[in-house]
Simulated assay, not measured.
Amino acid sequence: QVHLSLGPDGATRVTPGMLLDGDHPSFEGFVVEVLDPTGKSLGDVVDCSHLGDTLVFRVTEPCTHNSCWGYLLPEDKLGPQFDCPADSLFVNCDVDALALPPPPVQDNCDPQPLVLPLGDTTITDDICDGVLVIRWWKAIDNLGNSSTCEQRIFITPTDYFDFPEDTAWTCSQYAAHPNITDPTPLTGDLQTTGSGKPVGVSGLYCNFNFSIHDDTIPACGNTFTIVRTWSAFNWCTGEVVTTDPDGDDSEQLIKIRDLTAPKLIRPPFSVSADTKGNLPVLCRSHGLLLPPEVSDACGKVTVRIFTPNGEAEYVNGQDGLAGGYIPAPGLRIGTHTVVYRAVDACGNVFELPVPVTVVDDEEPIPVCDAITDLNLGTEGLAELPAQVLD
C-alpha cells in the first residue's frame, strides 16, 4: 500500500520509483497503470477527483511481462497558497484599509478555500508620515490544510482632493427629499444623497479638515440657489486651501429649479343659453366657465381662460382659479373650444383646450290671448292660425 501526495496543481504522475521496492539501477522500461475502484484505467496520472478512493496500481516490465500490483491512496497535504506580497500595499488616505479584501488565495484541490481574519494592528506614530496597518489571514481548505499570510497596508497622506461640482435639483425632488442639499456625498439615491463633498480626503487618517458657509438666494416660486463656500485646512502643513489641484475654486452652486409646467384638469362641460335670440339670430350664453383643478410642485399658479370671444370675466376679479364668465357678445348654441392656460411663478406654461357646449335647455312657453274675436264666413266656417292666439 502506497500513500501518494498530490502536487500543487492537483495532480501527480505516478512513477515506478514511487511503487517498487529494492534497488534498481534504472526504472526505464517499467510501465505504470492505475485503476479506479471500478477497474477503469487512469493511466499513470492521479488527481484530486480520486481523493478518498483506494486505487489499484500495476507495474509491468515489458520485456518479460512480469508485473506486480498494490494499493494506492491519494492524499492532499498541501495547504492553500496565498499570493502574499512581501512589500506593503500603498493606498490613499480615503481608503478604509480594514475593508480591503484579503490577498488572493488558491488551493490545489479546493476551488473555494475558507479565508479567515486572524487580527490586525495599526501603527499611527505620526499620520503626517503615514499609517501602517498590518493584517493577518488564515486560509483553510476542505481537508483542513491551512496556511497564513501577513498583509501590510501603508496609508499615505495626500495633497490631492477635489472640491464638489455644482449641482442642480428640481423643487419636487427637494420637497420630497430635503437632504439632497446636505454637504454629504452624492450617492445616486434620493433617499441618502447630498450635494457632494470634497473627494479623496474623507478617510479616518486624512490630513484635511473642511468647513462650509452657505448663502441662500431666493428665486422664482419656491426655488432658490445655495452658494456654498468650502474651506479646506491641511493640518500637516497648516495651510488653508481654497483651490483644489485641478484648479477648481471652493465655491459650489446648488440650484433648486422649477423646470416642469403646472398641470390642469378640466373635463368638457355644458353651459345654458341665457340670452334670448330673435330669428335668424340664435340664443347665446354668458354663463360660468367652470374652474379647473390645478397642481404644481413649486408654488403659485395663475390661470387664464380664453374663449373665441376673448378672455373670460373672472369670478375673483384676478384670474381663472375660481372660473369666469363668457364675455360679450356671448357664445352661440353649439360646441366651442375654450383654452385654459396655467403659468407658474417661474414662467412654465401649460395649455388645455376644453370643449364647451352651449345648449338651449329651456322649453318654449306658449302665451295665448285671453279673448279672440273670430268671424264665421258665409259657409259657417272660419280659419284660426296659431299666431292669432300667441
Rank of each mutant, 00 (worst) to 15 (best):
D246I: 05
T167D: 11
N222Q: 12
V271R: 01
S49P: 08
A297D: 15
Y71W: 04
F350Y: 15
H336F: 06
D9Y: 13
E251D: 07
D120Y: 15
N348M: 06
L384N: 12
D9T: 15
T275F: 04
N278G: 05
E251M: 11
T181V: 15
G43Y: 14
D9V: 13
A139C: 09
D96L: 09
P113N: 02
I226N: 08
D36W: 05
N222Y: 09
V227K: 08
D87P: 13
N142P: 10
N92A: 12
I305S: 06
Y325V: 02
T38I: 01
D53E: 15
P8S: 13
V301C: 03
P185I: 04
G347S: 03
R135G: 05
D36L: 09
V241I: 14
I226W: 09
T335L: 07
R152L: 00
D125Q: 10
V45F: 03
D44M: 11
V32K: 05
V388F: 05
V339R: 06
L190F: 07
R257M: 02
S5D: 08
C128V: 14
S250T: 07
D344A: 14
E379S: 08
T64P: 07
L374I: 08
P62E: 06
C68R: 10
G320N: 05
L279T: 03
Y205L: 05
L19D: 11
D214K: 01
L389H: 06
L35P: 04
R332P: 13
T15K: 15
R58C: 00
A297P: 15
Q112L: 10
P178L: 13
G247I: 07
D107N: 14
F210C: 08
C63L: 14
H65E: 14
P308V: 00
G200P: 04
E33H: 07
A139I: 04
V133Y: 03
P385V: 09
T307F: 12
D129P: 00
P385W: 08
F57S: 02
V315R: 02
L35N: 03
P16W: 04
L51F: 02
D166F: 10
V349Y: 02
V115S: 08
K77D: 13
G247N: 06
P113C: 01
V199W: 13
C368L: 14
C128P: 12
L331Y: 06
